[in-house]
């Protein structure tokens, strides 16, 4: 009987030493214990395909495809992104447009959305206040311009929109991260940042003056 217990102990110790404990780091692909239909022959986003030569399930858009223009912002658009102001930041004469496209109302909610998107996508380089001193500067990012000079204060909104859409210099396009309405929200927030830097005591709402020690 003693041998039976010794064998049992040996089996347990060797099983634990081979299998390890819960949560230990491992390079092995997770074992699927009951693999019934866990992996089905269907395509999921960003997955691998054995069929296509480039092995992607996500197919690139064929040449000549134009995005469909109907969005929540432009529900009346028939098709194609035909609103030059909204989608390309251009005025009727083809120059960068001033102001915001029809259908966009710049209110507190819109600015909040702009602030959120700005903080996620722009602040790492441009800095939280738009002075070009984002965190990436410490890691060797080239000079990022400040928004607070006359050139960028005077540039049309459509120009800022175009920079987000197509990039400029070393900055690459953010069109894949920000849909058109979000880009306009960021433009509005950049304008707010610019305005904030040129504020004077006269801009402070009377009710808040005492908090800031103003008369």
């Amino acid at each position: 009987m003693r041998y039976a217990y010794l064998t049992l102990l040996f089996v347990v110790v060797s099983a634990v030493s081979v299998l390890g404990f819960r949560g230990s780091l491992s390079q092995r692909t997770p074992l699927e214990i009951f693999p019934d239909m866990d992996r089905q022959p269907k395509y999921k986003p960003q997955a691998e395909s054995a069929f296509f030569a480039d092995r992607r399930t996500d197919r690139p858009t064929p040449v000549g495809v134009v995005p469909f223009g109907r969005t929540a912002l432009a529900p009346e658009a028939k098709f194609l992104a035909e609103d030059d102001h909204l989608y390309r930041g251009l005025a009727a004469n083809g120059t960068p447009a001033r102001g915001y496209p029809a259908g966009i109302t710049v209110d507190a909610q819109f600015l909040e959305r702009g602030q959120l998107k700005y903080t996620i996508y722009c602040a790492p380089c441009h800095g939280a206040v738009g002075d070009g001193n984002g965190i990436t500067k410490q890691y060797g990012m080239g000079a990022t311009p400040t928004y607070h000079d006359d050139r960028l204060r005077g540039t049309p909104e459509g120009d800022l929109y175009h920079t987000i859409t197509a990039g400029k210099g070393n900055m690459l396009s953010y069109a894949d991260k920000l849909e058109p309405a979000d880009r306009w929200a960021v433009v509005a927030y950049v304008r707010a940042l610019q305005r904030a830097q040129t504020g004077t005591p006269a801009d402070v709402v009377p009710a808040h003056k005492s908090e800031l020690g103003l008369k």
């Binding site: 949560g23 692909t29 997770p30």
Partner: peptide
């Protein structure tokens, strides 16, 4: 006890860290 401890994603998935 062994099946309870090992035959669960708490063991099979947790800790997966591929290179």
């Amino acid at each position: 006890a062994g099946v309870t401890y090992y035959a669960t994603p708490k063991y099979s998935r947790v800790g997966y860290a591929p290179t």
